[in-house]
Design a protein around this nucleic acid. Structure first.
Length: 532
DNA sequence: GAGAAAATAT
DNA sequence: AATATTTTCT
């Protein structure tokens, strides 16, 4: 499993910004990406990620973020990335096709379903070179020629249930996270939907979602343009008014962004002030986010309960509670560390440019370096954290298996993250991760594996292709299949000169194409031989 | 005030 | 039974 060898030399060391409020997931994914030689910078706070992106214009070539970030406000995240023309991949642990659709609607170039494994990230680098020149651009062009249609007039049939049925969907059973089993099990469609109806449906879903988003987000206006009657050609255009003031986030605003809500003062629905023993305090994801944000802003040295408390500025929260949480947090981090040391697979036996040594060094996460933002640098225990092949156990929440308030219980959320259980550390090797994962969650092996990414390419193609030849032939991407069909890409490059200009490959395009051609022409399976 | 560890609550 | 949170003890 030579990760690096799978990456063409010119794509190595790519700067990727990883954003995920779930610490475990964050660290784990970072470690995976690093195995492919990428330079990974991580942060648990979406707003901070934006700051970094704004302050370091060209640093990040690709952003991979969790869709469910508590502090990811509406569309601003995608907005900025799209504006900066930085490709981004959204991931989520929600096993729902609609989630993937939403990700695409937001402008993501790809969608990854958690848990994610090494294999799933094998091709992410391609997005950097494979920019669709920003799907939006093309639409924009088209729009200027054909006028626009306000989205509000669209999607009436959005409610239409997926009439076409799922052709390639795979039904699986999953346990909801509700320990009480109130929500018992539910069937969830996984995989990609195929068929016209589906596409239409998804389009509407996107539109609907976009519209909803735009409404709640005054700063963005969404316009959808449909290529006339036949009604099948789709194009979508997202227009944005200047993102209100580039969003230079400082800690304060970041904190503010992290929604107010303080369960610290959870309503004691208990009528009288009788003998109700105060309910136990609950560290919600949002609170935890504040916590980690504060932790980051303060340096390691200053990360003391009292200061953290002050920084968090949450009323009714006590120092002891913070201290307790900190204690747990540290323990968690330490556990990860230990695990890593033990299980970190030997990256390589050889000692190439990215031999073991280098990898080891690159394992020092950069974590979001508040210093770059003017804050005091920190990181806490992360500094010494390395890969933890097993931290995938936690997926969506925040590293800790928090309980959810009844009303907060996310319906349909799948308990892939072992809610309510501890982080166990099975002795397994990375290569077996997927298998292990499947076993762990007793998923069948019907084609898709948990980390399988939905092939958004085709999906997107539908929005961008006037010619409907594709007529929605979406299908799942076999795990080992390249994200991009090289043949297809080449075809596009050769046959559609107009599209060509949309591929904003930048200076690397030549090398990329060259590599691509060689790969294709020489039926080469091993990119290794293209190393420089 | 902090951190460890024991005690409790869920 | 396993965790999360609260308390107690240094």
């Amino acid at each position: 499993m030579e990760g690096i060898s799978l990456i063409p030399s010119f794509a190595r060391g790519l700067n990727i910004l990883l954003v995920d409020h779930d610490t475990m997931s964050l660290l784990y994914l970072a470690s995976l990406l690093e195995q492919y030689s990428f330079q990974v910078t991580t942060t648990e706070v979406a707003s901070l990620a934006l700051s970094m992106i704004c302050e370091q214009e060209d640093r990040f070539k690709l952003v991979i973020a969790n869709m469910n970030m508590p502090d990811m406000d509406g569309l601003s995240f995608p907005h900025i990335l799209l504006k900066k023309d930085i490709p981004f991949i959204l991931m989520s642990s929600e096993r729902d096709v609609n989630v993937a659709r939403r990700a695409l609607a937001e402008g993501a170039c790809y969608f990854l379903e958690k848990p994610i494994c090494l294999e799933d990230l094998k091709h992410v680098w391609q997005h950097v070179y494979r920019r669709r020149g920003n799907p939006m651009k093309k639409s924009l062009k088209a729009i200027s020629n054909e006028g626009k249609v306000n989205i509000s007039k669209e999607s009436q049939g959005s409610k239409t249930k997926e009439a076409g049925g799922v052709l390639h969907g795979i039904d699986r059973q999953h346990m909801t996270m509700d320990p009480k089993g109130k929500n018992k099990q539910q069937e969830v469609e996984v995989g990609l939907v195929v068929g016209k109806n589906h596409v239409r449906e998804s389009e509407n879903t996107c539109m609907e979602w976009l519209r909803a988003s735009s409404e709640s987000q005054k700063q963005g206006r969404i316009v959808m343009k449909r290529a006339n009657d036949g009604g099948e050609s789709k194009q979508q255009e997202i227009k944005r008014s200047k993102l209100s003031s580039e969003r230079q986030m400082d800690f304060v605003s970041a904190m503010r962004a992290i929604e107010e809500e303080r369960p610290a003062e959870r309503k004691d629905n208990n009528k009288s002030s009788t003998d109700q023993k105060k309910s136990r305090f609950l560290w919600t994801p949002k609170l935890h986010l504040k916590f980690t944000a504060a932790l980051s802003a303060l340096g390691d040295k200053n990360a003391r309960p009292k200061k953290i408390l002050k920084m968090m500025n949450v009323s009714n929260l006590t120092v002891r509670q913070v201290a307790s949480h900190l204690q747990k947090y540290k323990a968690q981090v330490q556990r990860i560390n230990e695990t890593v040391v033990t299980n970190l697979p030997l990256i390589s036996k050889s000692s190439g440019p990215y031999g073991r040594t280098e990898i080891a060094q690159s394992h020092k996460k950069q974590i979001f370096l508040p210093s770059q933002l003017g804050y005091e640098s920190s990181n806490f225990g992360y500094k010494s954290l390395c890969a933890n092949p097993n931290s995938y156990l936690s997926t969506d929440t925040n590293g800790f298996p928090y309980h959810l308030n009844k009303n907060e219980n996310r319906e349909g959320k799948l308990a892939l993250g072992l809610e309510g259980s501890s982080v166990q550390v099975p002795e397994l090797e990375l290569p077996n991760l997927k298998t292990e994962t499947q076993n762990r969650f007793s998923l069948d092996s019907t084609g898709t594996t948990p980390g399988d990414a939905i092939n958004v390419e085709e999906f997107l193609a539908d929005f961008n292709n006037e010619s409907q030849q594709l007529e929605a032939i979406t299908e799942q991407v076999p795990p080992n299949q390249p994200l991009i069909e090289y043949g297809d890409l080449l075809k596009v490059l050769e046959e559609d000169p107009e599209d060509l200009e949309l591929y904003d490959f930048g200076s690397d395009v030549d090398r990329y194409c060259e590599w691509l051609r060689e790969t294709l022409g020489g039926n080469v399976t091993n990119p290794e031989q293209f190393e420089l």
